[in-house]
Design a protein around this nucleic acid. Structure first.
Lengths: 273, 273
DNA sequence: ACCAATTTGTCCGTATGTATG
DNA sequence: TCATACATACGGACAAATTGG
């Protein structure tokens, strides 16, 4: 019922009385957006915690005194934004926006903006180096174990480009997880999504890439184990640069757009939610 | 009309005939989502270029053979996702997802995930250093002029924390623009949004921060002018570290959550679209 | 395991005000 | 001025799922 008050007061500000006689409409916000905003405020302000239930549609209809379709339009806005979710029983819950959904959006946007491999690589270098540094500072034994297991599996994947690419992507994700930095995790996800298809091509076209990858991953793990940030950064930098070299050796120019890479692999569609 | 075919064939795959007698429903995708997906495919595949017009609602109704409400639900999904837009005449156009909208989403998510200043700072350091490097390599005279103008205005803003914070934020945005790397631009935007309120606090509580900021900005501009990436990186690193120091001097622990900072400044609401 | 009430998903038709040409 | 198209909102219908006995 608190929500209803909010929206009603908002509605009143849609019109401002002007001294004298007339009224001036002030960008009358649509009702469905007022509904969405009111609920969003509840969540962002912390009055409704993630995981906590929002009322049923019927309740919201009563509280806001609007039609169910209107409530549903507002809800759809928030659902699309990842702020609320429906569980199996389809009741509404506040929730934390999921990383992968956000990352998907960003990947899609970068594709449409026709960013080049070079731009993507530059950002990746910066982020991966930061991840290496942070992982060396914060890694736990469990994180290290996961990395070592990944390396072991990589050693057994020689000659299997698809699997190698998958394991390489996983290695960097695990390293970032070990760093415990959620901002880095969200920032590197889109780049990772977009670049993984290039990795496979490199492994199939540039044979020497595989041993160098295994060497680099091994040294990075060693550095992380010793909490030696400098060494981790050094090897990570080398590793990421190697991979740019591989991309060029595979016959691609650095200013090739990422979406042209996807367009070539006809079957594979770009990241879709 | 090509779109209509797509959706019709999709509809048929909702039901799969099983050898013998019965039919098995296969997660019947709602009609409005089929509409949205069909249009999204057109855009992502490049068959519809950003800026190009989509049909009117009535045309889509005919093509998909569904009710207008259904078309509108689908359209709203894409509009919310930033893939299509309406111009002044309300006709539908494909468009490039806007950076600031995406960045807003991410900022909101990071807030809700209760990331700490430390996490944010770590990512910012990495990205800003990369920006400095890239800007030194790619900056044009126009980009440099904009940076210099920003610096001049900063020198005149002494003692005005709010304006200083605004100009500092602008400086880093301009530098990133000068680098010409759109991936970096999108990656650093959310961090920038979330951290700008902390900047203001620092300037008001830590007097020595202002001259150090002006000094650093000046040296960064010099380095960029000389295309001296190393110097640009050096000064940027110093600058970003300074700012962490300022945050601590202002009395905050590094593991303070960002949303707690926003909650304190009651008036200022967190980033809303 | 069955039934009845509730809730949600989906879709349709209509109405009103507004912007466009 | 008028016709058209659009945004918004409402009301309702029916199917399917969920809940609570």
């Amino acid at each position: 019922m608190g929500i209803a008050m909010v929206i009603l007061s908002d509605k009143q500000t849609n019109f401002v009385s002007v001294t004298g006689s007339s009224y001036q409409p002030l960008s009358p916000t649509p009702a469905y957006k007022l509904v969405a905003d009111a609920i969003e405020r509840e969540i962002l302000s912390g009055r409704v915690r993630p995981g906590q239930a929002i009322g049923t549609e019927a309740e919201l209809v009563k509280q806001f005194a609007v039609n169910r379709s209107t409530v549903r339009e507002g809800i759809r806005l928030l659902e699309q934004g990842g702020l609320i979710r429906r569980d199996s029983s389809r009741r509404l819950f506040a929730c934390l926006p999921r990383y992968d959904r956000l990352a998907n959006r960003i990947s899609r946007a970068l594709l449409l903006h026709q960013v080049t491999f070079g731009e993507l690589w530059e950002a990746t270098l910066a982020l991966e180096v930061a991840v290496a540094q942070s992982a060396a500072e914060h890694a736990t034994p469990e994180g290290l174990a996961a990395l070592e297991q990944n390396l072991a599996r990589t050693r057994e994947a020689l000659g299997n480009p698809a699997l190698l690419a998958k394991l390489d992507t996983e290695f960097h994700a695990l390293l970032c997880q070990a760093s415990g930095n959620r901002v880095l995790r969200l920032a590197r996800e889109p780049e990772s999504q977009l670049l993984s298809p290039t990795t496979e091509v490199i492994f199939s076209k540039v044979p020497e890439a595989t041993p160098r990858l295994i060497e680099a991953h091994g040294f990075i793990i060693d550095a992380v184990r010793r909490h030696d940030g400098e060494a981790a950064v050094l090897w990570m930098r080398r590793h990421v640069k190697d991979w740019r070299t591989g991309f060029v050796r595979a016959g691609n120019p650095l200013d090739r757009t990422i979406d042209s890479l996807y367009r070539d692999k006809q079957g594979e569609s770009p990241p879709t939610p």
